[in-house]
Amino acid sequence: MKNVNVSLQVIPSVPEERLYPVVDKVIEYIASTGVKYEVGPMETTMEGDIDTLLEIVKKAQRICAEEGASRVCSVVKIDYKNEGVTMDEKIYKYR
């Protein structure tokens, strides 16, 4: 399957002082996978094979729980086209 974009926002239920450290663990994991990604102020957008990206989404939930979140709410957005879609084609003119 061609590239898709998946945006992920994790909202772990942790004390406020733990919020960024837990989110940072998720971003570290995303970086370790080798997929193309970009961190934004509200979500992280990834580019790649949909199955790979959805596995990352699943693992992100587990990371939050392992880091002490009693609950994790996540927002996931998927941009799919038959011919594939890239982050660059959507934002190149803003760079």
Rank of each mutant, 00 (worst) to 15 (best):
N3T: 06
K2D: 14
K25H: 04
E43L: 07
I56Y: 12
V35M: 13
M42V: 11
A60K: 04
A60S: 15
P41G: 06
N3Q: 05
D49W: 10
E28Q: 12
A69D: 00
E66F: 00
M46E: 08
V76E: 09
I91K: 05
E43A: 10
Y29W: 02
V72F: 00
E47Q: 15
P15R: 12
I91A: 00
T86A: 00
K77E: 10
E89A: 06
S32N: 08
V10Y: 01
N5R: 11
I30Y: 04
E66W: 00
S32D: 14
T45D: 03
L54N: 04
D88Y: 05
P12I: 12
A69E: 01
T33Y: 08
V39Q: 06
V76R: 10
A65G: 01
E17D: 15
V35I: 14
Y29N: 02
I56K: 07
V26Y: 00
D88L: 04
R62F: 03
M42G: 06
T45M: 07
L19A: 09
K90C: 03
T86Y: 04
I78V: 15
S13D: 09
V39H: 05
R18F: 11
E67S: 01
K81Q: 06
K93D: 03
S7G: 15
E55C: 07
E89Q: 13
T52I: 15
I50T: 11
V57F: 09
D24A: 14
E38F: 04
D24F: 05
V23E: 02
Y80T: 04
D79F: 11
K81M: 07
K36P: 06
A65M: 02
K93Y: 01
T86V: 03
R62P: 02
V6P: 13
I30F: 02
E28M: 05
R62E: 07
K81G: 00
G84F: 10
M1G: 15
M1Y: 07
E43M: 09
R18D: 14
S7E: 15
S70W: 03
L54M: 15
D49C: 13
P15T: 07
M46Y: 09
V35Q: 07
E38M: 11
I30A: 01
R95L: 09
G84C: 13
M46D: 11
K90G: 03
D51H: 13
P41I: 10
G34H: 04
L19W: 04
Y37N: 06
E83T: 13
L53I: 14
Q61N: 07
Y20W: 12
E16I: 13
T86H: 03
L54P: 03
V6D: 09
I78P: 06
E43K: 11
T86R: 00
K2Q: 10
L53T: 09
E28A: 10
